[in-house]
Design a protein around this nucleic acid. Structure first.
Lengths: 246, 246
DNA sequence: CGCTCCGTTGAAGAGAATCAATGAGCGTGG
DNA sequence: CCACGCTCATTGATTCTCTTCAACGGAGCG
């Protein structure tokens, strides 16, 4: 069986294209602010990178950290806590922007959770563009405001919630994100891109407690765990009650 | 004794002036992005308000919340946690901006911690200005990035730290802020604008634990408590060790 | 003086962390 | 094909910290 030669391949059908207009996050990311003409200019200085799961993209406390857009996978911002553990203080999914423009670096560590594809911008060029291009700057601002809001939401969660509440809220949050691999539209089935250890670092618990909560929820009939990284939530409403302190 | 008539009073000497150029946060806030000519335009639509300690400026979950600059005092963003408590997820000091521009409200409650002076902007006018005025937009972006960074720092703290670590980090954070009433330049003496209850809501502990930590730190010789809201840190370095998990 | 608000202190209980061991999945290599 | 070793997840027992419930003390004020 021979593979037929394809002619007139549309951009979308060509997964190996390096053109920005074929980028999977073309309309999600900051780049949506750029016209097709403008983005061709960007192609000259942006650099795509495929990062391995073990690769650290920036170190905590390092001054000059990267500026990038996540094209595929999940990228985490980390901060080491007092007892030497590592807390995840932010997540960036496909289309999200990572890094601290304008001067100083983020101060946080940046690393992928699993394999990821990112698109890196040189600092000075990006800064200049973000200042001069009105629409891009505005989009970056809105994106930052959104991140601030969700980080503050995380703050509420981590401060006072019980382990059960943290886990329920985390699962509901994930079920709302369409960008992570979702098998069903209602959000009841999740294919998490995280290990148990990573979940623990996100919700601020130990891996043991995370595991206990999963089994406890399963025996309570709230969910089932078809695979290591799969979760099937049986009743989203009941899960909401768990998150809300009921 | 008669008060002599003063002629040629300089702006700074006139505390009751309602002009923006006499504003105490003229050079700190977003308004620093505006020239003296531009700010006269702003005066036409901005409205100053004096808010009482008990006054709620915005309710959690309310869609249209306020946009304002803090001129004096402290303003908090709040979120009610699962167990009905109220967690403070953000603080705004003199010069800081409060609110969520562009569309949706913050979703968080906004209230002053003690008396405060704010400068309120109508939503549509502000949004328009922030989009059209390059320098103002840029300053708002940088401010938001800063807030995001400090919120993420708070996340690290609240997630895994012990009560002692939380309190030490909180005190150090406050000692670095020059905008709250500081009697000494080295930051070793603090006049906190917070009650014990408010501190508890900020660091995510109960009021009892906060109180216990204060007395424990006092008996350990780390600090002394001259007044209800006063703190004298004896050794900033040792306090840093406490915050860092030593 | 008595009231209220705020802060402190004490004793008991609950929840998560820690320490420790077992189990499941997966790739490697014999 | 199966044994082995590795990583990741689960489960158990214990310890410790913080919360909760309760009482008390002091400052400010009518």
């Amino acid at each position: 069986m021979t593979v037929p030669l394809q002619r007139n391949v549309s951009p979308k059908d060509n997964p190996t294209s390096t053109a920005c207009r074929d980028c999977p996050v073309r309309t999600l990311s900051l780049c949506a602010a750029l016209s097709d003409e403008e983005i061709v200019q960007v192609e000259h200085f942006r650099r795509r990178r495929s990062v391995a799961a073990t690769e650290q993209l920036a170190w905590e406390g390092a001054s000059g950290s990267l500026l990038a857009t996540v094209r595929e996978g999940v990228v985490a911002m980390t901060a080491s806590t007092a007892n030497g553990q590592e807390q995840i203080v932010g997540l960036a999914f496909a289309g999200d922007f990572v890094g601290r423009p304008f001067g100083h670096g983020t101060g946080f560590g940046i690393r992928p959770l699993g394999r990821a594809e990112i698109c890196v911008f040189p600092r000075d060029t990006f800064d200049k563009l973000a200042r001069e291009h009105r629409e891009l700057g505005h989009r970056l601002l809105v994106h930052t405001l959104d991140q601030l809001e969700s980080t503050r939401n995380g703050l509420r969660l981590l401060s006072n919630a019980t382990a059960r509440q943290k886990m329920a809220a985390f699962l509901l949050d994930m079920s709302k994100r369409k960008s992570i691999a979702l098998a069903r539209a209602d959000g009841a089935y999740l294919r998490l891109p995280f290990s148990r250890q990573q979940i623990a670092q996100i919700v601020g618990l130990t891996i043991e407690t995370v595991s206990r909560q999963f089994t406890s929820m399963r025996t309570a009939g709230l969910l089932s765990l078809p695979g290591r990284r799969e979760v099937e939530i049986h009743e989203l409403r009941r899960m909401g009650c768990e998150a809300g302190g009921a």
